[in-house]
C-alpha cells in the first residue's frame, strides 16, 4: 500500500467496507460456488451504500476477495471512465486502500459490468461480474421453487425451446447478450449480460466470480472450465459483433460500440474496451477517424 493510498483510506470503515462476519459468509459461498461450477449459491446479500442495480453483488464479492496487495480495475461496458466504474473504483480506494489501475494487464482483481476485457486474462487475475438476474430460466419460469427443481433435475428443455422459437420467429438465435451457457456439462448458467461475442472468452486462465446483490446469489467458474454456449447442430453458436473496424484504433477483432455523432445519420464505431483501444492507439494504431496517441478528439 502506498502512502498516498494510506492517506486516502477512510479508517472509519473496516478493511474493504464489509464487516468480518459478512465477509466470512460470502467467502464460504464463493468456495462452494467454485466447487460446483455454474450453480447459484444463495447468500445473505447486504445493503450497500449504492442502489441495487449498480453492482452491489459484484462489490460484495470484490470486498470479500480483496487483499491490501491487490491492484483493482473496474469497468462498465468495457469503459473505465463511466460513472459506475469510477464510483466503485473510488469506493475501494477509500475503504480498502488498494491501488487501482485502468490497465487490464496490471490489474489483479477486475470488477466488470457486462464485458470481458479484450486482453487475455492470466492465472494471476480474478474477474468479478456484476449480475442483475442470475437465473437463466427466470424469464421462462418465474417461480424460484420450479427453476431450482429444474436445475436439480438438469431439466433444460425449456431453454432449448426458447432458442428454437427464436429460430422459428427470426430465422436465427436472436439472443445477443446474456446468452446462456452450460458449465462443465452440467449447470446452465447466465453469463451476465455480456455480449455473446464475449462468451468464448469464458474458458480462461483467470478465476471468474459472479455476484447478484438484489437476487442474493453467488456463482463461479474455475479456470479452464468448459463453458459451452447452447446451440443446435444446424444452427451453431456464432459470436457476433458490428461488422466494422474501430474508428479510433482500427482494431478488427474487438467488440464495438456504435456512436451517433450528428443528426444526419453520421455514426462511428469504437472499441467498447477503452483500455484496449487506448493501448493500441499508444502503440501507433490509427483508425478511420482517429489521430495517433490518446489526446485525439475524434
Amino acid at each position: 500500500m502506498t502512502d498516498k493510498n494510506q492517506a486516502m483510506t477512510d479508517t472509519h470503515y473496516n478493511f474493504a467496507y464489509l464487516d468480518e462476519q459478512t465477509k466470512r459468509m460470502i467467502r464460504r459461498a464463493l468456495l462452494k460456488g467454485l466447487a460446483i461450477p455454474g450453480y447459484q449459491v444463495p447468500f445473505a446479500s447486504r445493503e450497500m451504500p449504492m442502489p441495487y442495480g449498480w453492482g452491489t453483488g459484484g462489490v460484495q464479492v470484490s470486498a470479500a476477495v480483496l487483499t491490501p496487495e491487490d491492484r483493482m480495475k473496474v469497468i462498465d461496458q468495457g469503459a473505465d471512465d463511466t460513472t459506475n466504474a469510477v464510483s466503485i473504483r473510488k469506493f475501494f480506494e477509500r475503504t480498502a486502500g488498494v491501488d487501482t489501475t485502468e490497465r487490464t494487464a496490471e490489474a489483479t482483481v477486475i470488477q466488470t459490468r457486462h464485458r470481458i476485457p479484450e486482453t487475455e486474462l492470466t492465472e494471476d487475475q480474478i474477474l468479478v461480474y456484476q449480475v442483475p438476474i442470475p437465473e437463466p430460466l427466470r424469464f421462462l419460469e418465474p417461480r424460484e421453487t420450479e427453476t431450482r427443481k429444474m436445475h436439480a433435475l438438469e431439466e433444460y428443455g425449456l431453454m432449448h425451446v426458447k432458442l428454437y422459437e427464436d429460430i422459428a420467429r427470426h430465422g436465427n438465435i436472436a439472443t445477443a447478450y446474456a446468452y446462456p451457457v452450460k458449465v462443465e456439462g452440467r449447470y446452465v448458467m447466465d453469463p451476465s449480460p455480456i455480449p455473446k461475442f464475449d462468451n468464448p472468452k469464458m474458458e480462461m486462465a483467470a478465476i471468474q466470480l459472479f455476484g447478484a446483490g438484489r437476487e442474493q446469489r453467488i456463482y463461479a467458474v474455475p479456470p479452464y472450465t468448459r463453458v459451452v454456449s447452447l446451440d443446435f447442430e444446424d444452427y451453431p453458436f456464432e459470436p457476433s459483433k458490428a461488422d466494422h473496424a474501430c474508428d479510433l484504433c482500427g482494431a478488427q477483432n474487438s467488440y464495438l460500440d456504435e456512436v451517433i455523432v450528428d443528426d444526419a445519420g453520421g455514426r462511428m464505431f469504437v472499441c467498447s474496451d477503452t483500455d484496449f483501444c487506448t493501448t493500441r492507439r499508444d502503440g501507433g494504431h490509427v483508425g478511420r477517424l482517429g489521430a495517433p496517441g490518446t489526446e485525439d478528439a475524434a
Partner: peptide, 10 residues
C-alpha cells in the same frame, strides 16, 4: 482467504 480461494479454484 485468497490462498483458500486460489486453492479451491486450482
Amino acid at each position: 482467504f485468497r490462498a483458500a480461494l486460489s486453492a479451491m479454484a486450482r
